[in-house]
């Protein structure tokens, strides 16, 4: 029974949203709006709560055991202090919440993002080797793209950006489209399996 009810709810909403897609009737739009604007948002709010509880629980256990204690304390403090700042002074304009966001969160996130540049350099150094004809074609295409996306492409020859555009528009795009079609079909069949109830992983398993 515990599995049957979610399956019925899932099938009901799956079929309803599918049917609503094909209608512009005001009542269809109204129902669509209610599902998207109200039900989804309510569910989302509760899922966040689940995440926060789990996060705090795991980190408190870690603190108790003495594993990475300073980091875990900072994490737990962050979870409670930042919402508190938002609750007391709001989240607009020059509030302390925005100060924390702009001066702590933004630089920290940008730093992790910037690591990508270093990893691209090391991965290129290691990975782009002319091991075979195919690998050499890939290597040449990569070099053309790198040159064209910087200012030197225009300086060396007008043809380089044109060749790069050709690579992007034809060989690369056709491969990408083929993959996208495959993914689309995979998504379609998985979604159908979920709606008709033969895919039960999202319920935690088979029973």
């Amino acid at each position: 029974m515990a599995r049957k009810i979610p399956k019925i709810v899932c099938a009901l909403f799956g079929v309803t949203l599918f049917v609503l897609f094909f209608s512009q009737h005001p009542s269809a739009k109204s129902l669509n709006l209610a599902i998207l604007n109200e039900y989804f948002q309510i569910i989302f709010a509760f899922t966040l709560l689940v995440g926060v509880v789990s996060f705090v629980k795991i980190n408190l256990k870690g603190v108790e055991r003495g594993e990475d204690r300073p980091y875990r304390i900072v994490s737990i403090l962050g979870v409670f202090v930042v919402p508190l700042l938002a609750l007391i002074w709001g989240i607009k304009g020059d509030s302390p919440f925005m100060w924390v966001f702009e001066n702590i969160q933004v630089p920290m996130q940008a730093t992790v993002f910037a690591l990508l540049a270093f990893f691209v350099a090391s991965a290129s150094f290691r990975g782009f080797r002319a091991r075979s004809v195919q690998a050499t074609i890939l290597l040449v295409a990569a070099l053309i793209m790198l040159i064209s996306r910087s200012s030197i492409g225009d300086v060396i020859a007008d043809e380089i950006p044109q060749v790069a555009d050709w690579v992007r528009s034809y060989p690369s795009m056709s491969a990408r489209r083929a993959i996208l079609i495959g993914i689309g079909l995979g998504s379609l069949t998985t979604s159908l399996r979920v709606i008709i109830g033969i895919e039960r992983t999202w319920l935690g398993g088979d029973k």
Partner: peptide, 11 residues
């Protein structure tokens, strides 16, 4: 994602 976490725990 907290929902993925809950489902993965069950799986």
């Amino acid at each position: 994602d907290p929902v993925i976490m809950s489902v993965a725990q069950e799986v």
